[in-house]
Write a protein that binds this DNA or RNA. Structure first.
Length: 709
DNA sequence: ACCCCTCGAGTTCT
DNA sequence: CTCGAGGGGT
């Protein structure tokens, strides 16, 4: 995207001519692509080679990327024949696809086994069977069979909701459309879609010859292939699958152990990993891990470690979950791949809260199949601790295989004695002093150094605007990072309220937005429409968008739920400036909100400039109640207490859900309690409830009761 | 007083 | 995804 900061174009500028040319080419390409689409999809008779077709497509996409305005124009190249849909449909997982906790060494493996044994109340002499299997580096996917027939396939997504990739999964030949033998009525098989090294190399060679996209590693190639909107492309990609887990099953479990389940999957005709092994204790597990490490290069596909699972499913049930990870399984990761490169420089970024964050600019280097050129350095202490100096040779790795970090400096390669890195004590963007706050109680300095510029710091202003527009806040489409920076630079948007007066002011301006580089009539109109659509926004999103320190999504929801409307929060928070006030106590008493958060809220509303901005903003935006509290649910008006471990949701979720249904959630059992929801490990509350004759139910019974509301 | 969990704020790359 | 710190339960 060429949102050039420097130039608002005048109508006579030469770029205008090139946009005109682009428009003509765009139209011509669109027509040609449409012709081929019809020939290919509807008549099943391709009129060009795939490579030629791809080249046309690429040119078309490149044009739209260069001139975003074109993307808004109607084109026959989109949505013709069975040409790709715009997006995948979302499908909710009936049973969430959770993540795994990690361990990194033998001690932690031992610890995992101990924890399992302790939780189950088994003596030291009792052994627990644990399966070990390679952790495939692909992408996980859930495939649903009903009466043995494949009905749909969904990517993991965020664990709760994924994308419908049924058409693509059906092109993978080793995944049966129909299960063999006597499969359960409903069976959701979960496993990993991956690509072998050999296929990956061949695919990249082909892609290169055809001028197509070259993939960085097999995992990206598999992901790119599975997420093709056009399944005829996926069909040409050699994908594979290993089944290792399951979601919903009805009509009887095929086995009572982890290994039995996987063996059953194999009988149903699903591919399973031949290396799965049953271990007796940590010694076996570590032996498996070491052996697999030796064989790693010969497997023919990428793995990033081992997964251990408690074999007995009854034990798995008892162990349950901690937040989003099962207590009965863990991933043992291979050490992160490392690479050596040069530190070219250190850049200081300024965040929304003024935090100065150093980022290492690196000589680009491939680590774990991805080219890395930046790495976070966290804070100034980190730089000092590792004695990192500009020009050093450094070892880089990707932590958790995602975020690059600098492990250490190779001091031997250092020439002479370059100066230690001097962390700036002024903000690089606005020149204000940058200080480390001192904790009043402990007298210790905060690890982060912050710009004190506040309102006058342009970097902070831009970050605040970004936050305001972000997906979980106001979610204004068309106001991405680039656009916000652009409008801020131009002086058109300084604070959130300015966003909503942009259109009115634009009408009176000579240099209209639609004439700026990167904008056109259509995209400008779309932007204004997107802004208009947010003049009403749920209260919790509104509070979150304000960017109050320590008020993220969850705390914003807590405040919104407690106060109901913005005016109530505002009045209370202003009065809460005095720490001894009743108002402060009210905020403090909200569950999940303590002293520090309450103070942060009060601090925000006490500031005059925040108050003035709020006045301006509220003229433009109306916060709406966040969600209705049901009055007709089976639990409306009832007082509920949760105790013990909850396995299907967090306490907060359970609480929020109950409150949404009109129930009151209390912390302890009393005569007023109507229902006690008791999970495993429930203690005194359960006894008390039983004594008081309070109705006690399990988490599942509770969920069944509120189901369908 | 401790310990565990959750939340916020920071970051990378496709 | 990770880190540190806030909050609440034991």
């Amino acid at each position: 995207m060429s949102l050039d900061m420097s130039a608002a174009k005048t109508p006579a500028s030469p770029e205008k001519a090139s946009l005109k040319d682009a428009r003509a080419e765009h139209a011509r390409l669109g027509a040609e692509i449409a012709k081929h689409d019809i020939a290919y999809h509807q008549n099943d008779a391709p009129t060009v080679s795939d490579a030629d077709y791809d080249a046309l497509r690429r040119r078309f996409d490149a044009l739209e990327k260069e001139f975003p305005a074109l993307a808004d124009l109607p084109s026959p190249a989109r949505g013709v024949g069975s040409a790709p849909a715009q997006k995948f449909a979302k499908i909710r997982h009936v049973v969430p696809m959770l993540s795994l906790g990690n361990v990194f060494d033998a001690d932690e493996v031992q610890e995992f086994v101990e924890r399992v044994r302790r939780f189950l109340g088994l003596g030291a002499e009792a052994s627990v069977d644990i399966t070990a299997e390679p952790k495939i580096d692909g992408l996980s996917c859930s495939i649903r069979y009903e009466k043995g027939e494949l009905v749909h396939a969904v990517t993991r997504g965020d664990g709760f909701e994924g994308e419908d990739v049924t058409a693509n999964v059906k092109t993978i030949s080793e995944i049966p459309r129909k299960l063999h033998g006597d499969a359960p009525a409903v069976l959701e098989v979960r496993g990993e879609v991956y690509m072998t090294h050999a296929d990956f190399t061949a695919l990249n060679k082909r892609q290169e010859a055809e001028g197509g996209k070259v993939f960085a590693n097999p995992r990206n190639a598999a992901a790119g292939s599975l997420r093709q909107l056009d399944s005829s492309i996926t069909a040409k990609r050699p994908l594979h699958f290993f089944a290792y887990a399951w979601g919903e099953i009805t009509g009887g479990m095929p086995a009572s152990t982890q290994r039995g389940m996987v063996e059953a999957f194999a009988k149903f005709g699903l591919p399973t990993n031949p290396r799965m092994t049953l271990c007796r204790g940590a010694g076996d597990m570590i032996a498996f891990f070491d052996k697999l490490g030796e064989d790693r290069a010969r497997l023919g596909y990428d793995i990033d470690g081992v997964v251990y699972k408690v074999n007995d499913l009854a034990y798995q049930d008892r162990l349950g979950f901690v937040s989003r990870a099962p207590r009965w399984a863990v991933a043992h990761k291979f050490p992160a791949e490392q690479a050596t490169t040069l530190l070219l420089g250190i850049e200081i970024q300024v965040g929304r809260t003024g935090a100065l964050t150093p980022v290492a600019k690196l000589e680009p280097v491939t680590v774990g199949g991805v080219v890395v050129s930046n790495a976070t350095l966290h804070n100034e202490d980190e730089i000092a601790r590792k004695d990192i100096r500009v020009g050093d040779a450094v070892v880089v790795q990707r932590a958790g295989d995602v975020i690059p970090q600098i492990v250490r400096v190779i001091v031997e390669k250092r020439e002479g004695d370059p100066p230690k890195y001097a962390f700036p004590d002024v903000c690089p963007k606005c020149g204000s002093a940058a200080i480390r706050e001192i904790d009043e109680k402990t007298g210790e300095a905060d690890v982060v150094r912050r710009c004190t510029g506040g309102l006058i710091c342009p970097a902070q202003a831009v970050e605040r605007l970004r936050h305001f527009c972000s997906r979980n806040a106001l979610d204004i489409e068309g106001l991405g990072d680039k656009q916000i920076e652009f409008f801020h630079e131009k002086g058109l948007i300084k604070t959130p309220a300015d966003i909503f007066t942009l259109e009115a002011r634009d009408k009176e301006r000579v240099a209209k937005i639609e004439n700026f580089e990167g904008f056109g009539k259509v995209s400008t109109r779309n932007l204004f429409a997107a802004i208009e659509a947010r003049r009403e926004v749920e209260l919790n999103r509104f509070i979150f968008a304000l960017g109050i320190r320590r008020i993220g999504e969850t705390n914003a929801r807590r405040l919104a739920r407690h106060f109901g409307e913005f005016a109530a929060l505002r009045a209370c928070a202003r009065a809460a400036g005095d720490p001894a006030s009743e108002a402060r106590a009210e905020i403090n008493n909200i569950s999940g909100v303590g002293d520090v958060v309450a103070e942060a809220v009060a601090d925000f509303f006490v500031e005059d400039h925040n108050e003035r901005e709020l006045d301006r903003l509220l003229e433009q935006v109306t916060p709406t109640p966040m969600e209705s509290v049901a009055t007709d649910s089976p639990v409306a008006g009832k007082t509920v207490v949760f105790t013990g471990a909850l396995e299907r949701m967090t306490r907060e979720e359970a609480k929020a859900q109950a409150e949404r249904l009109g129930a009151k959630v209390a912390g302890s059992v009393s005569k007023k309690t109507d229902i006690l929801v008791a999970g495993p490990g429930a203690g005194s509350k359960l006894t008390k409830a039983q004594d008081a004759g309070v109705r006690v139910m399990s988490e599942d019974e509770w969920l069944a009761m509120i189901a369908g509301t």
